[in-house]
Design a protein around this nucleic acid. Structure first.
Lengths: 141, 141
DNA sequence: GTACCTGCAAAGGCTTTGCATCGGC
DNA sequence: GCCGATGCAAAGCCTTTGCAGGTAC
């Protein structure tokens, strides 16, 4: 279960497993699909979880560093997140007209990326790839 | 020359080629490597080019749409740009410790990306890919 | 002459931070 | 008990916008 992995990461980094962090972790995993910091915070607020916005912002990077959550940049001027368990790695096609996001996964690309990292003697921690364009529905208009 | 391409784009879109836009275009091409809006604006200011920050922010998207400039998301909370002429398409390895950015280009990945777009019936306009990790120098420490 | 463009300053949206208090370990 | 964590509100960035005057075509 994900809390173990988080606890392990925190211990390893000398940080504490607090109530707020547990609640944020749970909410991130309760959410399927993409979410941003504000959305996560609103849901906690609605449930009167007693966690502040600042703590949400402080905790999300920890979840990312522990590889439980992935940070995405969908070009909207804010960070988007998704949890990783049961969501194998994938990348995104983003329609610049309607904002639709399509997910794709391509193992061959990943293999090539690993080759590139080897070439640069670079330790890959995460990677993301966005393709911006127009989806078929928007092209029809 | 790049101004022709920009003029062509503007005409096609029903926009005007103004002095401010010309100056911003030139400054973008005078800059080699990455730059952000603020950096471009400071350089113009230093030269007393008489162009406002607002106009820089309004013009950069036009340069991006005309394919003269590429917009990057290097995960720093702001947009980074680079001009495209003489800079063939490439992607980035970003070191999360020291911030170094290494460029790479891989035609095989591009071919695979095109295949993905075909599969989704998606018209690719641009794409970018970042790999976050640790460079060899930072790993030594 | 008509749209469109510009500069300025203010507003906006997202995120970080200072500080006093609280709480894991 | 110590050092990190939290909440709150304020501050910080980057970026966008309203408006009055200017300008390409």
């Amino acid at each position: 279960m994900e809390e173990l992995q988080f606890a392990e990461y925190l211990r390893h980094t000398g940080l504490k497993l607090t109530r707020a962090r547990r609640v944020i972790l749970q909410e991130a995993f309760r959410t399927h699909g993409h979410f941003d910091a504000e959305a996560l915070y609103s849901r906690l607020k609605k449930r009167r979880a007693g966690v502040s916005r600042a703590t949400v912002y402080r905790t999300l990077p920890l979840l990312v560093n522990s590889n439980l959550v992935r940070k995405l940049d969908l070009g909207e001027g804010r960070s988007t997140f998704e949890h990783t368990l049961g969501h194998p790695h994938h990348d995104h096609l983003v329609c610049i007209d309607c904002g639709s996001v399509f997910e794709f996964h391509n193992p061959k690309i990943e293999t090539l990326q690993q080759g590139i990292c080897k070439e640069f003697d670079f330790e890959m921690l995460s990677h993301s790839q966005q393709i911006y364009g127009r989806c078929k529905d928007c092209r029809r208009k």
